[in-house]
């Protein structure tokens, strides 16, 4: 099985980083596959940025090893950085440069043609009139957009993005999500960190949950969602029919014409069973990773720390 998988874009083995006595990363082993969007999820201070800085060679692991694009993170960090697009968390730019100058400058240093610049500026709504202004006058969101554009403008095979939607308004977050979808369709790989669950749920293929430097879970997002209990509520014309035989349905509560229940897994069997002219209203709440994890790690206070 292992042989059939294409080589991992990011591969870590027992990666550990201590700052003095503080354990920032503990024995992290994971793979990021080509063409996927990999979410790295955890509360603030859980080690997300440490992981990213270690992958880019800014920090050296205390023990363990890792490779990015097949290159060793300690020996070949310069080459890794050259081939990767990176958005640091809490981006800072030179205040006295204009947005366009900042992008030009970083691209000059990077040395690969900025083939995606125009497309990115358009999709993230950074017109030339805004790019001409000095970064000093930018809002938090505009700076973040410059950060995203600079990370992706040279169309890197791997983008490492530290909390990419921080400071973006909901509309721009959506634009960013669709951008991520397109990058995946074009075979680019993205490693992104986030503390926002719905975001990871929306864009990621797989997700790793980290807490206090420990890897708590590494799951396929679709699998998680499929195995998650959804809350359903229904309203009938007349009395509610008997539904207890449907697979996955539990906790059925009937109150006159209203009924609530929880549904585990696939929704199709349930939808077929309830299909009836007397059904007036149906609500299936979207599956939430938070609850999925709560379920997986019930009793483990780790997952409660992850905020939605």
């Amino acid at each position: 099985m292992e042989d059939q998988q294409p080589a991992a874009v990011i591969h870590t083995t027992g990666l550990t980083k201590h700052y003095g006595k503080v354990q920032a990363l503990v024995d992290l082993t994971l793979d990021v596959r080509p063409g996927e969007i990999f979410g790295f999820l955890g509360p603030n201070g859980s080690g997300k940025s440490t992981m990213i800085r270690t992958l880019l060679g800014f920090l050296h692991p205390t023990s363990g090893s890792a490779s990015v694009l097949g290159l060793d993170i300690v020996d070949d960090s310069v080459e890794i950085r050259r081939r990767t697009g990176y958005l640091p968390g809490g981006i800072a730019l030179y205040d006295s440069l204009s947005g366009a100058d900042a992008l030009d400058y970083l691209n000059d240093l990077q040395g690969t043609p900025a083939v995606r610049r125009e497309e990115l500026c358009e999709r993230l709504q950074m017109p030339a009139s805004v790019l001409r202004r000095k970064v000093r006058d930018y809002s938090r969101g505009m700076r973040q957009k410059i950060g995203v554009i600079q990370a992706l403008q040279h169309d890197p095979v791997l983008a490492i993005l530290d909390e990419p939607t921080e400071g973006l308004d909901p509309l721009m977050q959506q634009a960013f999500y669709s951008l991520m979808d397109d990058l995946r369709d074009q075979g680019r790989t993205t490693f992104l960190s986030s503390h926002v669950l719905p975001e990871v749920e929306r864009i990621c293929d797989r997700v790793a949950i980290i807490r206090s430097g420990h890897l708590m879970a590494l799951q396929n997002v679709d699998d998680l969602l499929a195995r998650r209990k959804r809350r359903v509520s229904l309203r009938w014309r007349g009395a509610a029919p008997e539904l207890s035989g449907i697979p996955g349905l539990a906790d059925v509560k009937t109150d006159g014409d209203r009924m609530t229940a929880t549904l585990l897994g696939d929704v199709s069997g349930f939808v077929r069973a309830i299909a009836s002219p007397s059904l007036v209203d149906l609500t299936i709440e979207p599956a939430r990773l938070e609850e999925a994890f709560l379920e997986y790690y019930a009793g483990d206070d780790a997952s409660e720390e992850v905020r939605g």
Binding site: P88, L106, L109
Partner: peptide, 16 residues
């Protein structure tokens, strides 16, 4: 201190 460095160091080498 302004952390511009993180961006720069990704695009260019420390020696440069």
């Amino acid at each position: 201190s302004s952390r511009v460095m993180e961006l720069l160091i990704t695009a260019a080498t420390p020696r440069q």
